[in-house]
Computed example of a mutant assay.
Amino acid sequence: MRMVDRPGARVRVAVIGTGLIGGSVLLRLADAGLDVAGWDPDPATRDRAQGRGVVAPATIEQTVADRDLVFLCGPLPTLPDTLARVAELTAPGCVLTDVGSTKVEVAEAADRLGLTDRFVPGHPMAGAESAGLTAASPALLAGAAWVLCPMPGAATDAFRWLTGLLVELFGARVVPMSAPAHDSAAALASHVPHLLAGALAGATQRAPLRDAVLALAAGSFSDGTRVAGTPAERTANMLLGNRDRVLHELAEVRAFLDGLAAELRADDAPALIARYTEARAARLALVDRRFVGQAREFPAGGDHDAEVTWLRGLGDAGGHLTGCRIGPDAVSYTARLPVAD
């Protein structure tokens, strides 16, 4: 992938924050041969990055100087301020993106700062319960669903270019969505599961027979509590950053759970079976999704509203982009849409 205004040059990238996700981005870009530098506020982490063969300057200023693309990968509450700082330190043509697990707050900050022409809110849907650069891997994000939030207007150019790069370098399935749609979907897909995992693991920790429970724990317990091993501060930041949507979806989950409990209490086997049959359908759809290909082309310039409307509709329908080719007169997308159950 090459910047359109510098034919023949390597893409120059900076990664700000080199924990699990940022570190994995950094290592993959380095493996791909890009000119990449990473910065972290922790000097020991910068030393580890250098030990893994990656350039890790002492300051943000040195790290982002003369870059084509900057990934903002610090803690969620710091992203708006980091965005403002990095924007001041980079040229207007430098594309900015983030990897935060909520999108509305940082998207609104970009709008206030007048950065919607070059900031593309992003969220790779991958991770682990471990943390830090020591847990990072260049393969962690391979093939991940990677949400990008396109906005009408000139920001489409940054979105197009970043989409192509993520597909090429990470094999990403780019899911285009509006920031509010992402936060609503992520609440149920990611954030509420952290609440449920924490509740199950927390109740076990307090149980009189805790050690016996852990001795008997098999796949269902291990799968259901995996994300409870995530560092507590990271989980709290994610939940608080999407509080209203998380609480709304939690109420929906609680209503379904209350129904299960009522049917169990009433010894109503048919109703219990029916409810689990409904739940099983979602699980089967997850593990056996089938897709159909789609291609669309839009004018490279002019009014981008139709393009953005199509992109957001694709993501809302569960689809993703598999490619983006930018020509002098048109941009061509290849996509995949799920087949109806």
Results as ranks from 00 to 15, higher is better:
T59N: 11
G202Y: 00
A172K: 07
V213L: 10
V167Q: 07
G114Y: 03
D47G: 14
G323A: 13
R290T: 11
T163Q: 01
G241C: 11
G33T: 13
C73E: 04
L148I: 13
F298S: 09
L209F: 00
A172T: 12
S101N: 05
T18D: 00
R2E: 15
V99M: 05
A154I: 12
L321V: 14
V4G: 09
A306R: 09
A135F: 00
A228D: 11
G38K: 14
D268G: 07
L209T: 13
V227M: 02
G8R: 01
I60R: 07
L284Y: 00
A37K: 10
L79Y: 02
D223H: 11
G301R: 08
L321M: 09
T116H: 05
P43I: 13
V55W: 01
A261E: 11
E61C: 07
V192A: 03
T59E: 08
V246H: 06
V13A: 13
R118K: 15
R48L: 10
D329R: 15
G17K: 08
P152L: 09
T63A: 12
P92L: 06
G153R: 03
P41Q: 11
R283H: 04
G318Y: 04
A142K: 12
L166C: 06
A279G: 07
R118I: 07
A58T: 11
A84E: 03
P338T: 14
P41D: 14
M238P: 01
C324D: 10
H194S: 13
D303Q: 12
P180N: 11
T97G: 04
T78E: 05
V120R: 04
L250V: 06
L76C: 10
P57D: 07
R336C: 10
R265I: 05
V99W: 01
V54Q: 08
E61Y: 00
R336H: 06
D81Q: 11
V213I: 13
L257H: 02
V25H: 05
L34Q: 07
A107S: 12
V11R: 01
E105P: 03
S220R: 14
A110T: 11
H123W: 09
T59C: 12
R234C: 01
A136R: 09
V192Y: 01
A215W: 05
C94K: 04
E263M: 08
I326C: 01
L200N: 02
R280A: 12
R52L: 10
E88K: 14
G114T: 14
